[in-house]
Design a protein around this nucleic acid. Sequence first.
DNA 1: TGAATAATTTTGACTATCCAAAATTAAATC
DNA 2: GATTTAATTTTGGATAGTCAAAATTATTCA
Lengths: 229, 229
Amino acid sequence: MLPSSTVENYLKAIYLGEGHLADDQRLVPMGQLASALGVAPGTATTMVKALAESGLVEYEPYNGVRLSAAGEKLAALVLRRHRLIELFLVRVMGLGWDEVHDEAEQLEHHVSDRLIERIDEMLGRPEVDPHGDPIPKADGHVARHEFDTLLTCPLGERVTVTRVTDQEAPFLRFIEQHNLMPGESIEVEARDEVSDSVRLKGRSDQRITIGMRAASKVRVSASDASSRG
Amino acid sequence: MLPSSTVENYLKAIYLGEGHLADDQRLVPMGQLASALGVAPGTATTMVKALAESGLVEYEPYNGVRLSAAGEKLAALVLRRHRLIELFLVRVMGLGWDEVHDEAEQLEHHVSDRLIERIDEMLGRPEVDPHGDPIPKADGHVARHEFDTLLTCPLGERVTVTRVTDQEAPFLRFIEQHNLMPGESIEVEARDEVSDSVRLKGRSDQRITIGMRAASKVRVSASDASSRG
DNA sequence: TGAATAATTTTGACTATCCAAAATTAAATC
DNA sequence: GATTTAATTTTGGATAGTCAAAATTATTCA
């Protein structure tokens, strides 16, 4: 039995939901799962119980759900397809990075392994997708390295944007217009709790101030000084 | 309500089923439809009645079903997606023309108009797919021109292969190996009812003898003498 | 700790799609 | 024209996925 689109979507949502959490207590609550999938809470409960039956998740009533080893591998493969398709649409088809998410959301369930392999090959076995998210390998292995966000990284130090963890088109366009895409080198000049804002110095010392909520959606890593002459 | 994959498949099957028939009495019988879709006869009946409810087909109990104007347009658009995807997979992704059918069968239901437009553009608004079948326009209009087959075309006259009307991979590989793909120029030297065979002279006077059943699956048009010096 | 609130699960019901087998209708044959 | 055969439709039932609303459990807060 190969999993239906619905099952793949549930696994993916649980996988991404777990992302926020610590390694030990990584139970995704039903409410969060239901709203991530846009279904009623009861629907999520029913479905998750079925997933638990088939061994793809572990379900703790009233507590939440977490992926089993099998479920995690499947979720990673869905994400692999999603991210390879996104990158393909941007690099080969010339679509904008803010408009490929929905398309990939559909295609990820219907592309054969054969075609995905072809895409992977054509793109040169890439490590990350257009949002900077890592692309799982064909065996389901993911290079998980966690970074600071603009909210937590050191002040006054050059950092490189690695991921943008919000896939909404308007946000992505904002990011693009202000040169905050993955790969850009920037610096956090100041943060202010009171005004809920973060001031950035971007490319060619361009200044922008953004809200803390937005800042938390931009992941960065320390720019390696040695690699920049 | 946009149509489900199932509805699209029914419409496409009826469209293709009508292809064999004359313009007036073009009713596809239920049995044929059911077996084309791989469902039980009763299932096809039920579904067709529902399609008739929504105005996509005209249903005559015990006689068969034909597409309405709306249904025909929808079917043409599904076919457009299918054929553009096939051509894309061959030309851009480098897949074999005998392995793209199944992939396209899946993707045709899940690709956005936006992406199809991109593909169409990238391929230079092509007229035909890798099997020589015409690609409907975005408005649903199809250039329908019927040709002879190797079974009916004049003997001893140069003809050009235009379509191969059997999508089975083994057959397509056979066609490819013997240089009988769309575009190739060939000549029927002889036909023999008794031995059920057709003798062909192909590229660089290569000879092959094929069965009449196979010959009927290769459509051709008269090679235009003026265009070949 | 006990009531108010929030999250979760259960229940009953619905839609789309499918099948198997019985019943019916049409077609073919004698 | 009556009967056999073939095609089609009906019937009863199954599965996957969904919702709304009632019932339950957990949590919060006074």
